[in-house]
Amino acid sequence: MSVPAGQAQADGGLRATARIRAEADARGTSRLPVLDGEGPLAVRRIRSAGREARVALVGAMSAPLGGDRLTVSAEAGPGARLDVTSTAATIALPGQSKRPAHYDVRLSVEEGAELRWLPEQLISANGSELRVTTRAELASGARLLLREEQVLGRAGEEPGGLTSRLTVRCEGRVLLDQELACGPGAPGGWDGPAALAGHRAIGQLVVVRPDLAHAPVQPQMLGELAALTPLAGPGLLVTAVASDALRLRRVLDEAVRRVVP
C-alpha cells in the first residue's frame, strides 16, 4: 500500500496528518470507515479478536524532525470501541529547520464509546525541540484509557527540549490539564528535586469512566516513584517517574492491572 508523502513546507519541515474513525455497526462490531495516514504517519488495521477495532501507528520514516507539524486524530463514534497502539517508539530528532516540531493528538470519544490510546514511548533525542499537545474530548458515557510516556534522551544521551500538554475534557468540562516541560530551554528546576530529580522516564496513565464520578478510587502509591490519584471528576491519573523506559512501563502495566477491570 502506498502512503501519500505528506506536504513539505517552505522551510523544509513536513506537514502530515493521520485520521482514524471507528463506528459501531448494527451488530455492535466496530468498523473503521476512516483510516488515512500520510508521510511519517502510517496507520494499519490490526486483526481483532473481539468487537473492538484495532489500529497501529507505524513509523514510516524518521519523524518528528525540527519544523515538522504532525497531527493524529482518532475518533470513536457513538458506542464504538477503538484500540490504538504503535509499532515502535516515536523519536524526536533535530532537523534542517531550526524551528520546533509540533505533534498534536486529537482524540474524540463520542457517546457510550471507548478509546484505548496506548502508543509506545516518545523519545526526546539530543538537539531536538518538540511541542506535543494531546487533547481528549469525551461525550456522556464515554470511556478512555490513555498512556503517555516520555523518555529524555536515547541511552546515555542528554535530552532535547520537550513540552507536552495533556488536556482531557468530559462533556465540555476540563477534567485534567497538565503540561510538562523539560530539557534545554525548559524553565529552571525541571530536573531538580521538585520535578524529575534526574529521572529520565516520565509516564501518565489516565482512566476516564462514568462510574468513577460517584465511586472515586482511593489514592495509592505504586512503589516510591508513582502515585495513583482520583481526579476531580469521573477519572483517575497515575503519575510515574523512573530511571528508564523499561522500569516505567513495568509500573504503568501494574497500574493498568489495578485499575482496568
Partner: peptide, 18 residues
Amino acid sequence: VDALPASSAPLLDIGAEA
C-alpha cells in the same frame, strides 16, 4: 481559562500522595 498555564512537576504530585 484555557489560557492559564498548566505547568506540572511530577515529583511534587507523587510526593504529595506519599
